[in-house]
Design a protein around this nucleic acid. Structure first.
Lengths: 260, 260
DNA sequence: AAAATAATATGTATATCAAACACATTATAT
DNA sequence: ATATAATGTGTTTGATATACATATTATTTT
């Protein structure tokens, strides 16, 4: 079987592997040369880390590293390394900035407006996560990193186009919250229904009926009564529940949404 | 007012503009220098163009330009130019490949797995659109560009990770179809309810009850009876409707979803 | 021409679910 | 003891999804 045949019918398994490999190497060399001629862009990832504490939604921000944005707040971002998947890059950046590990990050959107970065064209891919502040201690505290009340950000100046990115991420988060009970991750293992509701109210930014909220969540059958009660509340204590993650994982495929 | 003050309180409007500008130029120079030190990646955009014809969902593909993918089908993609917003890049690529203009493209997701491109690390941003095949003639026919039946793609070999990209895009499309009656764009101006239903059935890939489908769509109040009937059908002709785009635009903010 | 066929057009009954609202219960504070 | 404020548990009503029934109209077959 000749090499020319190999070229046209590259699937053929009976052909000699050596010739096939040699040809492939040639072709890759061609593609490498081609790719080299195209413009290249620096890529960053930006992590939008949402948390929940004291009845309000928070976002993790740092002081910008750049002199030009001195005093302004910034998302947790950095340049992607060569040959690094951006999912990995986001996880690495988060770890470098906070010391946090095992955080589930999800890609939200890529921002490419020319002029979005003062240092020339820089493309950024936004990643988002939701986590329980109490379960994820900040092990590194450089650049004044800390949790900001989400509502307070309206008055604050953010570096780059990070306000736009945040805006996209909060909308993404609200949509996700309607589709899956992600919010559970923002609460302690045991929580009262009031805490659960105020979590949803904070993120979805609207009030809900206490009784209907309760009914809807119980109907999902993902709440387990721990038998315990709240303590240290200045009123009648409520029952404490935990979330049945196992049951949720088994049923989430059939899940159509929460529909608040 | 000294320059040092200018540095710390850059918002101050009373300070001399010239010094401010000079300082800003300095800072930008610094940032430019910093950005230059970071790795750069070639960026492509890939357009996933869905269309609908003869009762089935189609996708626009071309033969791959690359010798290494000879014979394989590929999405409409190309490298992004310097200082080009990726939204523009996607529109440009689509125009270059098909001659089509005025196509609304939406960003779906960025793919960054190292090794996804044989020519080294290349990042791609997928854009998606839905259009009426009859209203958008292909003015350029290079690389055997043509509409492929979506179902037939399961057996076909695609270049790069384009199967993965397509998979993401069809899921994105299905979700969008539930949220907004996008499918209308895939039909002629006047259409029968049967055509509308088979469109939804094709894209959502499941059968629906004819009577309930009708009821649900009528309940939206976006269909206008044209008074005309189907012609050239081998059975009782149905009424022809058109879509009230104006009314839809006015009400879509309050739109919660189609919920089939 | 009459009957069979196949699709359109319209309607009904039932179960499910969301929204609004009423009331009893139980802890804390006065 | 009483007021207060939150929890816990319904009930009612209206809207909507689902399943199913029947009449209508054009085409095709006999």
């Amino acid at each position: 079987m000749a090499a020319t045949h190999e070229l046209s019918v590259s699937k053929e398994k009976s052909s000699p592997k050596k010739i096939h490999k040699d040809l492939e190497k040639e072709l890759i060399k061609d593609v490498l040369g081609l790719v080299e001629t195209y413009p290249r862009v620096p890529i960053t990832v930006d992590c939008v880390i949402f948390g929940f504490d004291e009845n309000s939604l928070k976002v993790l921000l740092i002081r910008s590293d750049l002199e030009i944005y001195k005093g302004k707040w910034s998302l947790l971002g950095d340049f992607a390394k060569d040959s690094e998947d951006l999912d990995e890059a986001a996880a690495r950046v988060l770890k470098e900035r906070t010391g946090m590990d095992d955080v589930y990050l999800e890609q939200v959107r890529t921002f490419s407006t020319p002029g979005r970065h003062p240092g020339g064209r820089v493309l950024t891919v936004a990643y988002c996560s939701l986590l329980n502040i109490a379960h994820h201690q900040l092990k590194i505290l450089d650049n004044e990193i800390h949790w900001h009340d989400f509502k307070s950000l309206k008055e604050k100046d953010l570096a780059f186009d990070h306000k736009l990115i945040l805006d996209n991420c909060i909308q993404w988060l609200q949509k996700r919250m309607m589709e899956h009970p992600l919010g559970i991750n923002l609460l302690p293992t045991k929580f009262s229904l009031r805490k659960l509701q105020s979590l949803y109210e904070s993120i979805l930014d609207r009030q809900m009926d206490r009784r209907n909220f309760r009914k809807k969540f119980f109907a999902m059958n993902f709440l387990i009564d721990t038998g315990e009660m709240e303590t240290d509340v200045p009123h009648r204590p409520g029952k404490l529940y935990k979330f049945d993650f196992k049951k949720y994982e088994q049923n989430k495929r059939r899940w159509t949404g929460i529909d608040f």
